[in-house]
């Protein structure tokens, strides 16, 4: 069990606020933290990794105490065995891909294994500036897990990538998570991502936990009677007579939907939307057979 309790004063755009929360995680679980920017998401990751010290609180990982304001315990980041994946990747520009990984461990065989796992062997001797964002992200991910951390912390890992690459990296992330049974915290403002990856989602607003539970519960609270629902991103909206036609990307597919004028007021291009339907009579057949 991993238990975090912390209080920390933050300076938000509209003045000071308190990040004040308590979370417990099961070992080996993958939990998402979502919420608007400035809610304190990144601060939680930095406190867990020891890069900043809360005003008060306690961090316990298994039977190790990492931080306790009462007992005056505060392990340095070097002692905490965390893998932190930074939003801007934070790859060392003066080291090759392989050197970036070897910087974290002396175990060359494990480095080789990881490079193979994220399919980067061919790029092992390249410098980060010659890589695409998706490749950089895979290097950063491999580097974050190379020491087999007790806690893997991911800060907006897939923002800034195109949807296809994002999808691919999500799969990679799940693969690494399962392979090494890493307890993982994923910070993301992308609902679709959190839904796809996480067993449990915590929603943070102004430093407080406002929701905590099963991903579906979180969005679906008032709409549990829906037979089918998806999360997607609005790609395009155009007017058609008195209504609007919206194109929504759900996974790899594009779906066209009708929006009323009222819907249009609340929904815009680029927004994450929940699509639900009650009257649904789906046909289920093996792939390949005609519908």
């Amino acid at each position: 069990m991993i238990a975090l309790e912390m209080r920390k004063e933050l300076v938000a755009a509209d003045g000071p606020m308190w990040l004040d929360l308590a979370i417990e995680l099961k070992e080996g679980s993958l939990i998402g933290i979502t919420g608007p920017s400035g809610a304190g998401k990144t601060t939680i990751l930095r406190a867990l990794s020891g890069l900043l010290t809360p005003e008060s609180g306690r961090i316990r990982v298994g039977d190790e105490l990492w931080y306790s304001s009462d007992l005056g315990v505060n392990l340095r980041p070097q002692q905490r065995e965390v893998g932190l994946l930074f939003q801007d990747y934070a790859l060392f520009p003066h080291m090759t891909v392989r050197q970036n990984l070897e910087f974290a461990t002396r175990d060359r065989r494990h480095v080789d294994e990881l490079l193979a796992l994220v399919e980067l062997e061919a790029l092992a001797d390249r410098f980060p500036e010659t890589l695409s964002n998706g490749q950089k992200q895979r290097v950063a991910l491999a580097r974050a897990v190379v020491r087999r951390p007790k806690l893997l912390l991911l800060d907006e890992p897939l923002s800034g990538l195109d949807p296809q690459m994002r999808r691919r990296l999500q799969d990679e992330l799940l693969r690494l998570h399962r392979r090494f049974e890493l307890t993982t915290i994923l910070v993301s403002h992308d609902l679709a991502e959190v839904f796809r990856l996480c067993e449990r989602v915590v929603r943070l607003e102004r430093g407080m936990i406002v929701a905590d539970g099963d991903p579906w519960q979180l969005v679906d609270e008032h709409e549990t009677s829906h037979k089918f629902s998806f999360i997607g991103e609005v790609v395009d909206i155009r007017p058609a007579d008195v209504v609007f036609l919206a194109v929504v990307a759900v996974g790899q597919q594009l779906i066209e939907l009708v929006l009323t004028a009222d819907d249009r007021l609340r929904i815009d291009v680029g927004q994450q939307v929940l699509i639900g339907s009650k009257a649904f009579n789906p046909v289920v057949k093996p792939v390949g057979e005609p519908l």
């Binding site: 990794s49 890069l51 340095r76 070097q78 932190l84 934070a90 060392f92 910087f103």
Partner: peptide, 27 residues
């Protein structure tokens, strides 16, 4: 020097002095 790079070196287990010689000074 990007403070995230230094933070990354710390979380990868390197002391302040090691980080200085292997990350901060070279950069």
């Amino acid at each position: 020097v990007d403070s995230n790079l230094i933070a990354a070196a710390y979380t990868l287990g390197h002391s302040r002095l090691e980080t200085a010689f292997r990350v901060t000074f070279p950069l």
